[in-house]
Design a protein around this nucleic acid. Sequence first.
DNA 1: TGTCATCTGTCATGGGCTGACATAATCTAC
DNA 2: GTAGATTATGTCAGCCCATGACAGATGACA
Lengths: 201, 201
Amino acid sequence: MGLRERKKAKTRVALIDAALDLFLAQGYEATTIDQIAAAVDVSPRTFFRYFGSKEEVALAPAADAQDVFLSELHVRPASESPFAALAQAMRGAVALLREGEPEDRQRFIKARQVVEASPMIFAGQMRLMMANEQRILEEVARRRGVDDLRSQFVTATFTSTIRVGFENCTLEELSDLDGMTQRLEETFALVDEVMAPGWDG
Amino acid sequence: MGLRERKKAKTRVALIDAALDLFLAQGYEATTIDQIAAAVDVSPRTFFRYFGSKEEVALAPAADAQDVFLSELHVRPASESPFAALAQAMRGAVALLREGEPEDRQRFIKARQVVEASPMIFAGQMRLMMANEQRILEEVARRRGVDDLRSQFVTATFTSTIRVGFENCTLEELSDLDGMTQRLEETFALVDEVMAPGWDG
DNA sequence: TGTCATCTGTCATGGGCTGACATAATCTAC
DNA sequence: GTAGATTATGTCAGCCCATGACAGATGACA
């Protein structure tokens, strides 16, 4: 990896960190691109060469996490039922984050706080999840053999489960990864209890 | 209702219709506030006195529909289980739209086409649904007696059901209300089949 | 009709975002 | 290490969305 590439990655991370700190300190809307760029000693124009919008920088950690989830999903064995594979992939993604760099964890937590603090960003995250859902649907349909209403329902149920599982985590002082994991397992258990056997097959 | 009030309502509807037509004709992002305002012979500044943002005018019909749904929900008998009440309220809202003015139906369909054509607006609709979900959760919690994880799950499942039911309607040439109704009933039936008895009680 | 409240248009401004062009940094080959 | 190609960055101009302030127009009401 050359110097140029390393510098770019460094600037990207610096922009994300500066942006998240500013968002947390003074709010998303009150923060300007100029402030973020100034904090990293970069021109505002350069900011937009790294991120397509102000929203994108706030959602970058979430987007990265979704990519991790998808790669986890694609290596799940074919023997698992669709929803089981999704749940296991989620556990795997969380585990990777837990074992990874502390800075990455910190960034992820900060990003989540920003998302929950601003309805604007929250909507953006929803769009991210919707885009992701299309790719998840492909995997579910592949495992079930058909892309029908039920495949869509399984996918949508998974999205809902994740959403409920992560929701209100900061509100309940469960902003750390342990709290998230626990909440997530409770929600998976609830799905298991509520659904008819073989519902996702 | 005085002249002033009538004029305002008329202008509001005219702005929505002009905006939707422009969005459909040349795309959401390519349409400017100036164009919308010019089409209604109104100053751009006035547009923002009716709608807080460009997005809001596109989502106005959806927001109105959600209000109708909520008022339907609040008059459902207490004897119905939470999810049954939600489903019946949805049927009621669709029925009201079906029996209402043809122009309102037309506007609703157009708005849905705009929403599906633009990821930008689609995200906005998600935010609308999330805001709505909070109010739905209150009703579910009221009926179940507790605001716990299961109440949240019931609410999220309903949101997912509606989303799956409405999704791809235009893609499948089911842009009319009949098609939507049919699709919605199929999805409700699937939920009924997949969930354990008494799951929402 | 005259007064008041409200709606509307005009103007000025800030901030998000983009294209064009020149400069500076890095990479590659010699 | 130097020269030329490649790529990143800064500067500048500009469009559009959105908002506050003020003045003029229009409907409400006695």
